[in-house]
Amino acid sequence: MMESSDEEQVEEWVPLRLRPDWSDVTPVPQDDGPNPVVPIAYKQDFAETMDYFRAIYRADERSPRALLLTKDAIRLNPGNYTVWHFRRVVLEALNVDLHQELIFVGTIAKANSKNYQIWHHRRWVAEKLGTDVRIKELEFTRKILSLDAKNYHAWSHRQWVLQALGGWEDELSYCQQLLEEDIFNNSAWNQRYFVITRSPDLGGLKAMRESEVRYTVEAILVRPENESPWRYLRGLYKGDTQSWVNDPQVSSACLKVLSMKANHVFALSTLVDLLSHGFEPSQEFRDVVDALRTPHSDPLDSNLAKAVCSVLENADSMRTNYWKWRKSKLP
């Protein structure tokens, strides 16, 4: 399989009506109804290609030239799902080598990486080819994610590949690599959770908790304003709130951040959560919160959680109403 044919040559466009191999087909113009609601003025190449496409589609012509025509039509508008549908019908009928198809989809996807049709088609092809293409699919999504590390379609495809075709071995280190490149990448945090909870090699959430907590706390201390690791940390204790409240690693992460000159919003909000689940704060916590209070904040003596909420009303002014609500719900 030659990957070099990735960059296909751009041939000079010859109108279909001038091509001898298309002389027997009568093109079918788009039917926009008697009084089109949204009349469309088509560009000429596009219009002609689509007119011929409609003709072969209507005739259900499953031929090599039909396959070529769908390629042209897809290049002109990769969003046209009907063309993709028909292409699959033709691919099946002609029993084409689907490895070639992966290359074609690859070239189209690079320029249109947020198109649902392309990714769905790619999955259809990969599913037919099976575990043979596992590495190729993981490499392909890696390539797309190197251009946009949050591409939702690429992540969905990758998760499907891992679950359907396997290849989990390097996934945790791949997440690691992406988080080293951008620690704010929520997609990579999500994938990390996906791996530790679903990989057949890692033993599940509980087995992974200790090392993951260490990793996450480190990430928090590097950028305390990053919401993703804070949520991830909470997720590591899914279904086990008591361990979360009692684990000194969690509370000490909050304390460390609160003692730094940094954005405190997530540390404080975690502290409110901990307190409302029964966490007993030490004097150190009272002192750091006291230091963050402004003249408008609630006094500290009554209830630490309330004081924290009133600090947050100022510190997170976009969500003042949220913090007021949280405060009103506290005992």
């Binding site: 788009q30 609601v37 949204v38 009349p39 469309i40 003025a41 088509y42 560009k43 596009f46 689509m50 508008n77 969003g79 046209n80 799902y81 009907t82």
Partner: peptide, 17 residues
């Protein structure tokens, strides 16, 4: 938008009109 001529957007929107 319903009446716009020669717009590329309307061409690529044909299938999701």
């Amino acid at each position: 938008v319903e009446k716009k001529k020669d717009s590329f957007e309307s061409v690529v929107m044909e299938h999701l009109r």
